[in-house]
């Protein structure tokens, strides 16, 4: 994969067309901000070349994964999409985010069955991994798009770096959700420590998140 001109990011092209372009992905619950969901869709629909895997770390009920997958389907690419999460939801989370979005009530905290059902339109291109990211082993497979919304501790962020960053192909895009959130100051610190490896300084897409 060759390096490409990233100046297009300055123009926020993902905003064009609005949420209707998300299609059925809009129905999958997410904690993403509006601009974030449009960005993820655009990355796979218009930016990615299908040259490497799309990896979604911390996908919750699959909302981010659905937006990535729908974009990829629109683009006609077939690179594998790997989504990781602990897939757990307590009652408060279910009441706040899932049930209002139409997810059927379920017993227990295992979110994987519900996420699998929600992602059924795209399961031919998605692999779901119920894992602790501190224990994940990534196969020797290049990554083109890496979305990180799981850096809730320095231990996890560092594990993500050790596991996934060596697979980032030249030109890969890394999106750090929550990079400007006061609860996760280490995310921006890491991006700044590694800024020499990026063709541009970390840039905010929305405030407070994400950064890429």
């Amino acid at each position: 994969m060759t390096l490409r001109d990233t100046s297009v990011f300055d123009e926020s092209p993902w905003l064009a067309g609005g949420p209707d372009r998300l299609g059925p992905a809009r129905a999958v619950p997410t904690m993403l901000a509006h601009e974030e969901e449009l960005l993820l869709y655009w990355l796979t629909a218009a930016w990615a070349q299908g040259s490497g895997a799309v990896v979604d770390l911390g996908c919750f009920a699959g909302g981010s994964t659905a937006r990535l997958a729908e974009g990829q389907r629109e683009a006609g690419h077939g690179a594998p999409i790997h989504a990781y999460d602990r897939f757990g939801a307590d009652e408060a989370t279910k009441r706040r985010f899932l049930y209002p979005a139409g997810v059927a009530r379920f017993e227990g905290e295992d979110l994987l069955p519900a996420a699998t059902a929600l992602l059924s339109p795209w399961l031919d291109r998605i692999s779901l991994h119920k894992e602790d990211l501190k224990d994940t082993v990534w196969p020797d497979e290049p990554i083109e798009i890496l979305v990180v919304d799981a850096s809730k501790s320095t231990a996890t962020l560092d594990a993500i770096a050790r596991t996934f960053y060596p697979a980032l192909q030249p030109g890969a895009i890394v999106v750090h959700c929550g990079a400007l959130h006061w609860r996760e100051p280490w995310v921006m610190a890491q991006m700044l420590l590694m800024r020499d490896w990026s063709p541009r300084s970390p840039m905010p897409i929305t405030r407070p998140s994400p950064f890429m």
Binding site: Y165, L168, Q169, P170, M194, D196, W197, P199
Partner: peptide, 10 residues
């Protein structure tokens, strides 16, 4: 990323 981060960068 302009290039794949090496172990030192990580």
């Amino acid at each position: 990323m302009t290039r794949t981060p090496d172990s030192r960068a990580i």
